[in-house]
Amino acid sequence: MDVNKYSSYTFKEFLEDDDFITWVLNPTDEQNIFWNNFSERFPDKKEDISRASSVILTYRKQDTFFNEDRITDVWKRIEVKVGPAAKQAKVFRLPQFLRVAAAILLIALAAIIYKYNQPKNFQTAFGEIKTIVMPDGTIVLLNGNSTLTYEHGWGKNSREVWLKGEGFFNVTHLNQDPAHIKKSERFVVHCNDLNIEVLGTTFNVKNRHDKVNVGLVTGKIRLTTNLVKKILSPGDYAEYAAKNISLKSKLTHPEKLMSWSKRQFIFSNVKLGDILRTLEDSYGYQIKYTNPSSRDLEIEGEISVTGVKELLETISTSLHVNVYQNDHQITIN
């Protein structure tokens, strides 16, 4: 570098000079010596040099935006597009909208197939009563806290349903020729391992606490398990428990079996524990007995009331017990 060249330099000319800027930005010993000597020889240039270099250095101290926080996220976006993993998947590519459309179509198709093959399921909450009309016209009243399930394509080959909880069935009669009963004319209710086979009848089924109670109102019922078989006629009330079917005393008014469907409670000569059990099962109440023996208190005669409140009042007056109801908790004192 020529010392004399710089002797006439102005402030501005220093800022234009490549060598000067290079020195300011990346000073080396060699350059330091040169500029040191220069300012010794031309002290009147000292201020211009000083000023020019401080302008550059101050200018360079400005705010930065390095966006470091985002370096990983932006990289991930790049990787997804062209990364080693993305490369292999790139064999065949549909346009964006087609890909989206195809994806939606696939999902919809899968959902339909899933739904199609999925058994139909009707469920009731505590205290809820549902009326289900089956494809063949059969009506099922579903009591609270119960589930009725049947498979898709129901009624074509057979009429089979699965019941948990309590339901009242009014089965449509399809059979024309009693001598030749087709499989599809038979209506079967499965409760655990008990099968209730009918042609066209009205009956109530209660499947709770590992016990199945079947009460027949009209028509004929055949109860079968792997081991036993029993035919019921109207008014019969059967109980299936511990792999055994037993017949209870005949009902004089079997139609009262469906009183629950009108939120009616009809009991005759029943123990308090059994009455309140139905409140637990179908309505979801929690029953507490301060004295456990009060479960065995029996109400003589018949109760026929509508609604939980009225039932509790009747219990209280006829058995002389205190009944406290707090939300879903009932305490018998």
């Binding site: 102005t10 402030f11 501005k12 020195w23 300011v24 930005l25 990346n26 000073p27 330091n32 500029w35 040191n36 300012s39 000292k46 201020e47 211009d48 040099i49 000083s50 000023r51 270099s53 401080s54 302008v55 250095l57 360079r60 101290k61 930065t64």
Partner: peptide, 21 residues
């Protein structure tokens, strides 16, 4: 605007100039 400074800055040029930023 930049040439003349009212306060004459004498930077210790040869020792303090460092690469920044």
């Amino acid at each position: 605007i930049l040439k003349v400074s009212k306060l004459v800055i004498i930077l210790a040029l040869f020792s303090e100039i460092r690469v920044n930023v």
